[in-house]
Design a protein around this nucleic acid. Structure first.
Lengths: 189, 189
DNA sequence: GAGGATGGTTCCATAAACGGAACGCTAGCG
DNA sequence: CGCTAGCGTTCCGTTTATGGAACCATCCTC
């Protein structure tokens, strides 16, 4: 009945929430003291909130997020779990679909365990893939001549031939993959 | 002595939140008493929360939403309408945030009306921007030497100097913009 | 219609979140 | 060099959210 272990993050949640608040604040170049003053909350309260050592009330959270200019929901992480696709080695999560007049872009976040590699068959003509590495080092591209990219680097290739993805080195690879389909191709799937 | 302006529109939020909780509970055919017992919170606490007469702590909200089987973000307003940022010419919507060990990537979808252009000030050191054009033709990059890109093409530049975006030609420009922020070095702990 | 069970609200002592002040720390500056 | 200013954390008295119990109301069952 209530079998599901649904609380993997119950005590990590305050920490995660605090980290998001701190990140939002720092992105705006605001000091803790300044945000506390503008939100009319004590510095102790804000410090504890960001460090996850307090159990803040909603009033506090509303005041802080209002000053940060974001809805409160943004500090609780993504609202839903997106669609995941598993290959033999690549684990891909579809994050967004952009539909333009003549093209469709699909944005995936992909993950390759260290040392893993996978070859994918050719897509229909005109499809291109665009990949940005977040962490790790990978080799990817046409099976006949893949290229290498590290954190922050970018690769692109035509995907109408067989193409490969391989994690190089000891680190797992995380990356964003944008696939461009030129024709209006059947939407959805 | 009344504080002049205290909470203009914020006191509607607790009511709204309470209504959502109550609706979720009733949809599951659960009584207030039962939910309070299962979530290990007092009936008084839950009653006050649903009626908007209390200022609940996050601990309470985590406990209640966990028992309702929903992420806590669901009780805050609509499914978190994406954050839109408007510049003088660029209209940007934050779609996703990727947090890695040492870097954060933010993915925006941006739109420039035909002929529009905008110059943005420098970001902190180490920030890079990566842009993929969906439709239209644009010129973007460091203000001292921008590059041109059309549909499906890609540009990248260091964003720690002033940089520009300009829609070239008669068509509006739609693009995906990935901004890479290096972490402020390994923070404590 | 009395008795019991369950529903949600209100009362109250206790535990904890709150804001202000004091603290240590790191620059910047005369 | 002190001296000042700002940062983030910690301490502490005050304010307040909390959970249990007491409190009505509404259904059932007999």
């Amino acid at each position: 009945m209530d079998a599901p272990d649904r609380r993997p993050a119950l005590d990590a949640a305050p920490l995660e929430m605090g980290r998001r608040v701190r990140r939002l604040r720092e992105e705006q170049g605001m000091s803790l003291s300044e945000l506390a003053r503008r939100a009319n909350v004590g510095k102790a309260t804000l410090s504890g909130l960001e460090n996850g050592t307090r159990n803040p009330t909603m009033e506090t959270l509303w005041a802080v997020t209002a000053q940060l200019g974001v809805p409160v929901a943004t500090i609780f992480g993504p609202p839903a779990e997106p669609l995941a696709v598993h290959g033999t080695a690549v684990e891909a999560t579809l994050l967004q679909v952009f539909e333009e007049d003549r093209v469709t872009f699909e944005l995936y976040r992909i993950h390759l365990p260290a040392g893993a590699s996978q070859t994918s068959p050719a897509h229909p003509g005109g499809v291109t893939e665009h990949l940005t590495v977040f962490s790790g080092v990978l080799s990817a591209g046409p099976a006949t001549g893949p290229s290498r990219a590290g954190p922050g680097e970018y690769l692109t290739w035509r995907a109408d031939v067989p193409h490969t993805y391989a994690a190089i080195g000891a680190e797992d690879v995380h990356a964003g993959l944008l696939i461009r389909y030129p024709s209006p191709r059947g939407k959805g799937r």
